[in-house]
Deep mutational scan, measured.
Amino acid sequence: VDNKFNKEQQNAFYEILHLPNLNEEQRNAFIQSLKDDPSQSANLLAEAKKLNDAQA
């Protein structure tokens, strides 16, 4: 993981990586967004979790 991520951002990265119901395309999009703007990690994680739950 890129060293410019802080602890919260790293946690978001790993959580998104391991959400079971996202397809690869969705997962990659969230990860790319996280890399583009790490400050949005909490929002991105919340969105990813919502999508993950919706696809459960």
Rank of each mutant, 00 (worst) to 15 (best):
L34Y: 03
V1D: 04
D53N: 11
E25Y: 12
D2M: 01
N23T: 11
Q32D: 13
A56F: 06
A56N: 12
N21T: 07
N43H: 13
L45M: 06
P38F: 04
N28Q: 12
L45N: 02
F30D: 00
D36N: 06
S33W: 09
N21V: 04
E24P: 07
N6Q: 06
L51R: 08
D36I: 11
N6Y: 02
Q32L: 07
P38D: 03
N43C: 09
I31A: 15
A12T: 08
N23Y: 03
P38E: 04
S33F: 10
D2C: 04
L34C: 09
L44S: 04
D36K: 04
E25P: 08
I31G: 04
D36L: 09
N52R: 02
K35D: 04
Q26V: 07
A48P: 00
P20E: 11
A56S: 11
E47K: 10
E8H: 04
A29G: 12
F30R: 01
A46I: 05
N28A: 10
E25Q: 12
K49P: 00
L34H: 01
F30M: 11
A46K: 07
S33T: 13
K50Q: 13
Q40W: 08
A48H: 00
Q32H: 14
L22V: 05
L45Q: 04
A42M: 11
L19F: 03
Q9C: 10
L19Y: 08
A54C: 14
P38R: 03
A56R: 08
N28T: 04
E8P: 01
N6W: 02
Q55D: 05
D2G: 02
A12R: 03
F30Y: 10
E15V: 09
R27I: 07
I31P: 00
A54K: 15
A56V: 11
D36A: 15
A46E: 10
L22P: 00
Y14T: 12
Q40D: 14
L22K: 00
N6K: 01
D2H: 02
F13W: 13
S39T: 13
L17K: 08
E8S: 05
Y14W: 11
A29N: 13
N3R: 03
N28M: 11
K50V: 14
K4A: 14
I16D: 00
L51C: 11
Q55S: 15
Q32Y: 05
Q10Y: 06
D37T: 10
N23D: 05
L45P: 00
L51F: 06
Q9T: 07
Q26S: 08
I31K: 01
L45Y: 08
Q9K: 00
N6S: 03
E25V: 09
Q55G: 10
S41G: 04
N11W: 09
N52K: 02
K49Q: 11
L19C: 05
D37K: 08
R27A: 07
N52G: 03
F5P: 15
F5T: 12
E47R: 04
K49R: 09
D53P: 01
E8C: 03
A56Q: 11
S41F: 15
S39M: 14
L51V: 10
D53E: 11
D37S: 05
E24S: 13
E8T: 02
P20W: 02
Q26H: 05
Q9H: 03
E24W: 11
V1R: 04
A56Y: 04
F5V: 15
A12L: 04
K7W: 04
L45D: 00
A29R: 03
A56H: 12
E24A: 05
Q32S: 09
N52C: 04
K49Y: 07
A48K: 00
D36E: 07
L51M: 09
N21W: 14
E15G: 05
N11V: 15
D53R: 09
L51N: 05
Q26N: 03
I16T: 01
N52Y: 01
I16E: 01
K4W: 15
L17T: 09
N23K: 15
E25A: 15
F5Q: 10
N52D: 11
E25R: 14
N21L: 11
Q40V: 11
N11Y: 14
K7M: 03
I31V: 04
Q32C: 15
K35T: 06
I16V: 06
A29T: 09
E24G: 13
Q32G: 14
D36V: 13
K35F: 15
N28C: 14
D53K: 14
D53S: 10
A48L: 01
F30G: 00
H18M: 05
D2Q: 01
L34M: 07
P20H: 08
R27K: 12
D53T: 12
A12K: 02
K35A: 04
L44Q: 06
A54M: 13
S41P: 03
K7Y: 04
F13P: 01
H18A: 14
Q9L: 13
E15R: 05
E25G: 10
R27C: 07
P20S: 06
P38C: 03
A29E: 10
E25W: 03
P20G: 12
P38Q: 05
D36P: 01
N43F: 15
N3H: 05
Q26Y: 04
K50H: 10
L19N: 01
A12P: 01
H18P: 01
N3K: 05
F30I: 04
E25F: 10
L45E: 04
Y14R: 11
N21P: 00
F13V: 05
N11H: 14
P38I: 04
E47H: 03
Q40M: 15
N6R: 01
Q40F: 07
V1K: 11
K4H: 15
S39N: 13
S41K: 02
I31E: 04
A42F: 10
E25N: 15
D2L: 01
D53G: 11
E8W: 02
K50M: 11
N21A: 13
Q55I: 12
E47I: 12
L45H: 02
D2E: 05
P38S: 05
N28D: 09
R27W: 01
E24H: 13
N43Y: 13
Q26F: 04
V1S: 12
E15I: 02
E47M: 05
K49S: 11
S39F: 02
P38V: 05
